[in-house]
């Protein structure tokens, strides 16, 4: 090609490294890293620091790979929603084939290396998580049921269980309850957001509870999931990862969370609009603190345990 034939327009959308990294959904990865790290450290088996670092890294890469595969499959609906229109594929930076190749390669890499670094139960759980998120959630149920948030939340709830399995080679009551904590937290967290943020899932024909069953039903769902969440979150305090610090945090936060859920349930749309969704917004903010504080408390309990307290 000569300089005379150089067409700068053709290169305007050429991807830089950050565009490929964005395929891995780095913001979602932070939750994966944090909860997997807690699961690993809360386990009653000491893990070599470098092996532990590698385990968390491979779990994060696996989570990122499933994000890339999600963007590959959902590029059509990402293009029509304002929130996702700037993602690398709809923005024209990365092709669908590239995203598929990156997603599949990193999935295999993450599972194989997690198995080699730790054990094959952890690797199997990671492989199942990727399969669940990509095939069961993204390809199958996301577009046909308004319970999609619940199903997607399950995929995001596996990392502490994988971290635990990486350390112990086992699944226990405590690791299952850590899974339940994130799994049951996701619906009230997301549906509270859906109540006060106008989302354009309609344009993408993705069924959302607020639209398919109405906002009243969404408020009821938030309350039901919050009650269930409180039972499991407090129950976790009586397993080997719990203790006085965790129980105190769990009791205080679940009382506040339940109070918020009851307030949301009792309100109608007129009351919410009158104060610009004040209760729903504060409930959403509390939900962010809720998950961080619960896993943070588990981490503190693990630290106290290691120090012999």
């Amino acid at each position: 090609m000569s300089d005379a034939s150089f067409d700068s327009q053709a290169y305007e959308n050429e991807a830089q490294f950050g565009d490929y990294f964005a395929l891995l959904k780095p913001r979602v990865m932070t939750l994966v890293v944090f909860t997997a790290f807690v699961g690993l450290l809360a386990a009653p088996v000491a893990v070599h620091p470098f092996i532990g670092f590698c385990a968390v890294l491979f779990i994060a890469v696996g989570g990122g790979a499933s994000g890339a595969l999600n963007m590959w499959y959902d590029s059509d609906i990402d293009a029509v929603m304002k929130r996702t229109a700037k993602r690398p594929i709809p923005a024209g930076k990365v092709t669908r084939d590239e995203a598929l190749a990156i997603g599949l390669t990193l999935s295999v890499f993450a599972c194989v290396f997690l198995g080699l670094a730790t054990n094959w139960l952890a690797a199997g759980l990671l492989a199942f998580t990727i399969f669940f998120y990509v095939v069961i959630y993204t390809m199958w149920l996301k577009r046909i049921t308004p319970q999609n948030i619940v199903i997607g939340g399950a995929a995001g709830a596996f990392p502490p269980m994988i971290g635990w399995a990486a350390a112990t080679g086992d699944i226990s009551t405590a690791s299952v309850l850590m899974f339940c904590l994130t799994f049951l937290w996701t619906p009230p967290h997301f549906w509270a957001l859906a109540l006060f943020v106008r989302m354009d899932y309609d344009n993408a024909t993705v069924p959302m509870l607020t639209v398919t069953h109405g906002r009243r039903a969404t408020r009821v769902h938030i309350l039901v999931y919050t009650v269930l969440l409180a039972l499991f979150a407090i129950g976790l305090g009586f397993t080997q990862v719990g203790g006085p610090v965790y129980l105190t945090v769990a009791l205080v936060l679940n009382a506040l969370f339940l109070k918020g859920a009851v307030q949301i349930w009792r309100r109608d749309e007129d009351a919410s609009e009158a104060d610009n969704f004040k209760v729903e917004k504060s409930f959403f903010k509390l939900s962010l603190l809720y998950l961080f504080a619960h896993f943070g408390a588990i981490l503190i309990e693990a630290g106290l345990d290691r120090m012999g307290w």
């Binding site: 700068s8 050429e14 830089q16 490929y20």
Partner: peptide, 13 residues
């Protein structure tokens, strides 16, 4: 060109 900056970013990455 902007293209070179993007390619350098990819290469370094």
């Amino acid at each position: 060109h902007e293209m070179h900056r993007r390619r350098r970013s990819r290469n370094i990455g």
